[in-house]
Design a binder for these strands. Structure first.
Lengths: 217, 217
DNA sequence: ATGAGACCGTACCGTACGTTACGGTTCGGC
DNA sequence: GCCGAACCGTAACGTACGGTACGGTCTCAT
């Protein structure tokens, strides 16, 4: 593996053609799980195996690039910390919760998490770390400022934002992710997701909502 | 696969020798993940591959038997519903929470869940279903009577025991299981586990504890 | 137009591993 | 002591798949 870095390393993202290939991998990953073969990828993406190896180095490189490509596709809508009140905080939390439930119940996310779990069990721990980083930890980084703004505004009470976030995470995800990963047929309807988001938010507010009312009051 | 049922089917459990083999598989699974080979199993268990195939049919059969063997080892301590009060309910819940955290953070559980996730991603969905059944659902079956007894005694309030259980599950497990499955180094100390169990129980009681005091009061 | 790359399709190679086959050894029943 | 069953250790087989090599085609700059 002493080749001159096989392209696709740090720096600019994949070219349009490479993106097409990665999307093909993504689709194949959903259909076949991690037992997809390089030959199948080449056929699906209408490219040669030689090109795959040239662009991505090896099978792991291809999977890694795919995970990162997918992760790069989810855009982060910034949260406005202006004019925060209980209503806007509540709807922000509900939004986070429903978005998150939609993500973890998507075929793509399930497939990617499966790949991450598989790789975490082997020496190649990278993929698992990437999935974790772009999933659970990215969510934490996005949500914690909201929680802290809520505390700032006197709407929430907690000692540690990380701990508070994990509570919220637990209330939202519950057993959904592990059940889906283990193959449970658990179809979440739109209405069900929204309802769960509302419930989780209410529970979180019941645990961490300020009893004293907003600070400014 | 039209052999006369390869032994190890329904009915009596594995023989002592077979249990030794399954324990060897378990250890190997923890060390090697699901990429363990039949040769490695035979070597570790000091038995021949021929015997493995005779007893367990094929690789999947061996893994399935292993998962079931491990599942059969966790015994269920019955919960006494007599003399239930807030203190005993609280300590029951704390016990469940800490037991559960200890289970899901054990090397064995992580390895087994990984195998389940892998198989759930392929056509062979059985192993995932078994892990789910012996894990998450078994816990639900054990805990729900406790919750219902608590409600009966006027200590808890909830509409649906399943929903209440899932809330408890979320508060206890939070992000622990997915992080461990994805390879996060997350060492849980004894004290940490017990603390989390207490916290989760308190949070659960804050959400579902009866506001009106015990019924008998 | 032509030569250089980039890339496609396919054939090929090496290996790892699931599965089977076989010779040798142990052991319980007669 | 002897027979057969169960089992061990190892060798062998077949295949699937990661990775490489190569001939053919297209594009594009000169």
């Amino acid at each position: 593996m002493l080749q001159t870095t096989t392209e696709m390393m740090e720096g600019e993202g994949p070219t349009a053609r490479q993106q097409d290939v990665l999307d093909a991998v993504l689709r194949l990953l959903v259909e076949e799980g991690d037992r997809l073969t390089m030959t199948a990828v080449a056929r699906r993406a209408s490219c040669s195996k030689e090109t795959l190896y040239k662009w991505f180095g090896d099978r792991d490189g291809l999977l890694t690039a795919t995970v990162q490509w997918q992760a790069s596709k989810v855009r982060v809508p910034p949260v406005d910390r202006k004019g925060l009140n209980l209503a806007s905080l509540t709807s922000s939390l509900e939004r986070f919760a429903s978005d998150w439930l939609r993500v973890i119940s998507s075929d793509t996310s399930i497939a990617l998490n499966r790949v991450g779990v598989v790789h975490a069990g082997s020496d190649k721990r990278d993929l698992g770390a990437i999935v974790l980083e772009r999933g659970r930890f990215a969510l934490g980084r996005r949500l914690k400022p909201v929680l802290e703004a809520g505390r700032e505004a006197g709407l929430l009470e907690f000692d540690d934002a990380e701990t508070a976030f994990r509570t919220f995470f637990g209330l939202v995800a519950r057993d959904v992710q592990i059940r889906l990963l283990l193959g449970d047929r658990l179809e979440l309807t739109e209405a069900g997701i929204d309802g769960d988001a509302v419930r989780a938010t209410q529970q979180f507010l019941a645990l961490h909502g300020a009893k004293t009312g907003p600070k400014a009051l």
